[in-house]
Design a binder for these strands. Structure first.
Lengths: 79, 79
DNA sequence: TTGAGCTACAGACCATAATTAGCATTGCCG
DNA sequence: CGGCAATGCTAATTATGGTCTGTAGCTCAA
């Protein structure tokens, strides 16, 4: 998929929500990564809006954060 | 990403929700694809649980279906 | 200062998301 | 019957998701 401005927008908002909830849970990126079963640097990229995560990864991360997947997708879409 | 059983599970449930809501809206796969700006066959693959869609694609499809992205992610995660 | 914990970032790599074209099948309708 | 709409399915290609290694910067405590 091409990296359109909209692409960047949604991905960035998703990353912001991940970072926010991770910090509320007082987890480091590495702790979150380990719990989610993804790589350390990948969490960083997601939070910075550099990676367009898939459903499976979203579920992994939401599980590791102890929130439903819908929490991470909330309010990402509207302008 | 490896195709683990969990992978298949979440992806399949997501596809089921897409198909359900598409049919409730009385759209063909092709109409949905055009509205979402993705290819016809891709929608078919998603509904059949063969594709692990990304955030951007989820938002595109949810927009084309006229529902919030959270609607498509709802109840995908639990066993 | 020195060291430890946390994060940003770059580069290389493999698996796969997403595109596209093509053909087969099913069911419905004239 | 023939034709049309909708879907399933395959194969080939390109772009990118996700892994891994390593470097560098920051803050804070000893």
């Amino acid at each position: 998929m091409k990296t359109t401005p909209e692409t960047v927008k949604y991905v960035r908002r998703f990353g912001q929500r991940v970072r926010l909830i991770r910090q509320q849970n007082e987890l480091s990126q590495e702790e979150l990564a380990d719990r989610a079963g993804v790589h350390r640097t990948y969490i960083g990229m997601v939070e910075r809006g550099e990676k367009n995560a898939t459903i499976v990864t979203i579920v992994k991360i939401s599980g590791a954060l102890g929130v439903p997947a819908t929490e991470l997708v909330r309010e990402i879409e509207d302008a």
